[in-house]
Design a protein around this nucleic acid. Sequence first.
DNA 1: GCAGCAACTGTCAGTATTGACAGGTTCTGC
DNA 2: GCAGAACCTGTCAATACTGACAGTTGCTGC
Lengths: 236, 236
Amino acid sequence: MKTWQENQLQTLQSIQSEQQLFQTIASLGSELGFDYCTYGLRAPLPLATPKTLIFSNYPTAWQARYQAKNYLAVDPTVHHGMRSLLPVVWTDNLFSPVRELWEEAKSFGLRYGRAQSIRDFNGVIGMLTLARSNEPITETELEAKQFKMAWLTQTAHLGMSRCLTPKLMPEADAKLSNREIAVLRWTADGKTSGEISSILNIAERTVNFHVNNAIAKLNAANKTSAAVKAALLGLL
Amino acid sequence: MKTWQENQLQTLQSIQSEQQLFQTIASLGSELGFDYCTYGLRAPLPLATPKTLIFSNYPTAWQARYQAKNYLAVDPTVHHGMRSLLPVVWTDNLFSPVRELWEEAKSFGLRYGRAQSIRDFNGVIGMLTLARSNEPITETELEAKQFKMAWLTQTAHLGMSRCLTPKLMPEADAKLSNREIAVLRWTADGKTSGEISSILNIAERTVNFHVNNAIAKLNAANKTSAAVKAALLGLL
DNA sequence: GCAGCAACTGTCAGTATTGACAGGTTCTGC
DNA sequence: GCAGAACCTGTCAATACTGACAGTTGCTGC
């Protein structure tokens, strides 16, 4: 017999389309008592212009508004989710720096919500928000549901990132050879080609050879970019 | 009134010594029915020689044995925890590649266990293992406790990494200026100083100036190392 | 007003990296 | 036996980075 969690997990892991996956997640959120559900995913690369994807069943008018005003850049829940794994519940205090966003959200019926983020081993961040219009979230309810919500955040992200990571970051499953990995590791630690050649007892030319192969495999512009990509993607 | 989770969280966040913290975590594990508890933490830097810390109340003889045979390098639970956020339950199948380790562990009374890892926004990985000698872990028990165990994994790591990150990676709280961050971001994406000077409309010399300041603040040997450190530590 | 910081710019010599030239060895799987 | 991969090595010219020289400007907080 499978546990409830394993069943849920298996379901979420077997779905191949991200749209269907989100529908399933939203319905699990609904079972937990939340009409609205939003899942956001942020790739760690490229660093200067990070890619963010959002799946949501919020009212479309609010989604449009949110995008038009670029609320993503100032949303305190997003800000929190970018630097903490702890769940956060929507409060007046949380939204105090951006009163306008908060008032507008409430006018669209988004009054009570809870968000939590997670970071996987490819460096991809996922954030799941569950929200509703009517009933405030009580301490008692939190106590009862916190675990399930955390679990849903995690499994939702596992499923979604499985679908989306290959599209957003094709380099994530580059196969680096052992030598390429070793050389990149030392490079990332700040060693020059000459130093690495001493460490590995090979010619400096060979070090550069492996570095260049890694640069090509990672579709990087240079050594620095290759080292950063490999490190962020957990290839080292 | 605070929820059970918030209380636990607050307790774990208020303790300052990592030893005391581990004691508290172990007793929470005990409440969940597991006599043995191990928490391992792995810093993402340096890449070539990563630092790992382990806190454990396993029999000391087994801990010594584990270290002597360098089982850390082959332990399948560690291997799993390094690349997946999913919990893993000890099974014969899991340990099939390293029968020796598994037989020895059992001889020390480590028969039934469950491990899960987590990765925070500094890139630090934490893994919590709960184990016991006598009673097998049933599906029913898992279903009942999975959420709490996941929660404990998370809060344990939050507390432990709060204590240990400053010691292991002092650069983690380096304060980079806005320009330093911008320049490092583009550097990490593979742009040369000349390209960045065009992007930011400043002289190439100025780009190098900011890069050098960042290198100093991050205690890095060169540009590449600075970019990798900043990226892995989430400073960008 | 002034200290301190962030941001900006210049030159120059020495060192490192990149890209393109052209190979050889060793091992694994079919 | 042979293809393919990983691993290894050499030279050379162009480009990029590093470190040390020596400043100016503008803003913030005391």
